[in-house]
C-alpha cells in the first residue's frame, strides 16, 4: 500500500521535476549567452507577457477552445452515427468506408479555401475544417468496437431471444466502449490541432481571433514573447484535453477494462 502511494507520487513528481529543470536550464542559457528576446525570450519574460497580454490572449484562447470543442462534439456525433450505420450492413461499410479514408488523407490546408467559400460564417467554417480532421478516429474505432463482440455472447443473446435493441444496448455498446474512448483520446487532440491549423489557413483578426492568429501576428511583428505565451496556452490546452479524456475513460471503464486496471505486483 505504502509502495503504491510513493509510486503514484513519483508518477506526478518526476515529470514536474523534469519541467522545472528544463525551464531553469532555458533561463540560465538565455542569460549566459545574452540571447536577444526576439530570438528566444527567457521563461520569466514569457510569464510576464502572459500576464500583461492576458486579456488579449485569454479572449483568443476562448475562441480556439470554442472551435476545438465544437469540432470535437461534431466529430463524436457524426463519427458515432456513421459507425452505427456501418455496422448495420457490410454493404454500407464497404461502399462508404473508402470515402471516410479519403476525407482523412486529404490535407485540410488544401480544401480549407473551398470550405471558406461554402461556409459563410467564419467560426462555422473553422469548426468544419477541424471536424474533418478529428472525425476519422471516431469512425474507425467505434466501428471496430461495435464489431468486436465476443461471438459466444452473441450466441447467448440469440439463444435468450434478445431483441435487436437489447443486443445493441446491453451487448454491442458496452463492448465498443473501450474502443470508443480510445478514439476520443486521439480525436480530442486532433480537434485542437485542427482548430489551430484551420485558424492558420482561414482565421480572421479582430474579435474572433484565435490563438493561432495571435501566433501569426506575433511572428509578423517579431513579438516573440507573445508568440511563446500563445504557444504555451495551446500546449496547456492540449494536455488538459488529454487528461480530461483519460479521466472520462477511467470513469467509464475503470472497474472492468484491462487498460484501466493497475496491475498489482
Amino acid at each position: 500500500m505504502k509502495a503504491s502511494r510513493s509510486d503514484r507520487v513519483l508518477r506526478w513528481m518526476a515529470p514536474i521535476a523534469v519541467g522545472i529543470v528544463v525551464v531553469l536550464v532555458w533561463h540560465a542559457l538565455v542569460k549566459a549567452f545574452e540571447v536577444p528576446k526576439y530570438i528566444v525570450p527567457s521563461p520569466l519574460l514569457v510569464v510576464e507577457t502572459l500576464i500583461t497580454d492576458w486579456e488579449l490572449l485569454f479572449r483568443s484562447l476562448l475562441i480556439t477552445l470554442k472551435i476545438t470543442f465544437g469540432a470535437f462534439f461534431m466529430a463524436v456525433l457524426i463519427g458515432t452515427v456513421v459507425a452505427f450505420l456501418f455496422v448495420q450492413s457490410r454493404w454500407i461499410e464497404v461502399s462508404f468506408f473508402p470515402y471516410a479514408v479519403l476525407l482523412q488523407v486529404t490535407p485540410i490546408v488544401a480544401i480549407a479555401p473551398l470550405i471558406i467559400i461554402w461556409v459563410r460564417n467564419p467560426t462555422a467554417a473553422l469548426v468544419v475544417c477541424a471536424t474533418i480532421i478529428a472525425l476519422f478516429p471516431i469512425i474507425a474505432n467505434t466501428t471496430l468496437g461495435l464489431r468486436s463482440v465476443n461471438p459466444g455472447l452473441v450466441d447467448l443473446f440469440r439463444m435468450n431471444r434478445a431483441s435487436r435493441w437489447q443486443t445493441l444496448t446491453q451487448l454491442r455498446i458496452p463492448s465498443a466502449a473501450p474502443y470508443f474512448f480510445g478514439g476520443l483520446r486521439i480525436s480530442s487532440g486532433l480537434a485542437l490541432i485542427g482548430a489551430v491549423v484551420a485558424e492558420f489557413v482561414a482565421g480572421t483578426g479582430g474579435t474572433s481571433a484565435g490563438l493561432a492568429y495571435q501566433i501569426l501576428q506575433a511572428g509578423f511583428s517579431i513579438n516573440i514573447p507573445r508568440l511563446f505565451a500563445a504557444l504555451f496556452l495551446i500546449t496547456v490546452t492540449g494536455v488538459a484535453l488529454f487528461l480530461l479524456m483519460v479521466f472520462l475513460s477511467k470513469l467509464a471503464l475503470g472497474n472492468w477494462h484491462e487498460s484501466e486496471v493497475v496491475q498489482e505486483r
Binding site: N150, G152, L153, D155, L156, F157, M159, N160, R161, A162, Q166, Q170, L171, P174, A177, L253, N255, W256, H257
Partner: peptide, 26 residues
Amino acid sequence: VMVFQDATLMPWARVQKNVRLPLDLA
C-alpha cells in the same frame, strides 16, 4: 440453455448482473 467453451461473461458487468442476464432479457 448452453454453456460455452469459454466463460463468455460480460467483462463490464458484475457476477450478479452476468448471472441475471437471461432473466433481464426475458
